[in-house]
Design a protein around this nucleic acid. Structure first.
Lengths: 148, 148
DNA sequence: TTAATTGCAAATGGTTTGCAATATT
DNA sequence: AATATTGCAAACCATTTGCAATTAA
């Protein structure tokens, strides 16, 4: 078992969660697709290949658990379906999402440039900030060239 | 009829939309609550007071129309319900939302401080940006004092 | 052993849609 | 008159939940 996997196993055990083959299979799918953003249904279908008996409810429950543990992030850009992404460091690391309105591709943008904004918010409103979410919508280079 | 109202009436007429009493009643509710953010159901219930026959489907269809026309913005912060806000200038004006995780209150923050970020995104990715959405989550002053 | 987890099927709930009746232009 | 709009009820559909059976610890 990889180091990463055994670390996750410990993380579960610490809180009395069990390391079931279903959870392992789902984790495997998510870790394989670190660059994609998958819907619950896509994760379900891919997990089914290795573990055909799995039910969609288990996938949803597992994704919720993994999100609680910080292993993944759940993104809500479109009205319809949520997307899930692996969180390589298991720690909150801010990154923004840039969404192409034509092809739907999601780029990630890692610099955190919101400190000034957060400082301004805090000083003018007294808010204590714990999180933020920035989504930028537009047309990617490829779609512009195709005439997006 | 107020100047604003007749302006909206023209806006509708331009595109062959009709100015029905239902639309007027809904508009009235939304304009009355410029500082609140209402759900479709809240708008439905308030509109019903002045126009009891109205159906929820009409409310949804009208809100969609108003959003298309730029009269209102539709916000998706919580998983459950969308919120609607009046857009006083009918033109896209960027403002950010600051959401209290305890009381759910939404503050608006009007300065647009994202130019640097957008410039960085454009130069590094070639993206052509048309919109953005920034949500900041935390605890408002009042909730902190209550021990949020 | 025992408490957590699973798969199934049914429920949820905000939102959308088909359609015949009605109202605006 | 022609077309847009309405209200109703039914459909939609991603996600959640109840429950009895199963499994990890």
């Amino acid at each position: 078992m990889s180091e990463k996997l055994s670390h996750i196993k410990e993380l579960l055990a610490e809180k009395d969660y069990r390391f079931t083959p279903q959870r392992e299979a789902i984790l495997h799918v998510i870790m394989q697709c670190q660059d994609d953003h998958l819907t619950a249904d896509e994760i379900y279908r891919r997990t089914k290949e290795a573990y055909p008996e799995i039910g969609i409810a288990t996938v949803y429950r597992t994704l919720e658990l993994f999100e609680t543990l910080g292993l993944i992030n759940r993104l809500r850009f479109s009205e319809e379906k949520a997307l899930y992404e692996f969180n390589p460091g298991y720690h909150k690391h801010y990154h923004h999402h840039i969404i192409c309105l034509r092809c739907g591709r999601i780029l990630e943008f890692n610099e955190d440039l919101l400190e000034d904004i957060e400082a301004a918010v805090t000083s003018s409103t007294g808010f204590s900030i714990v999180d933020h979410s920035l989504a930028i919508y537009g047309y990617c280079k490829a779609c512009q060239e195709k005439g997006g």
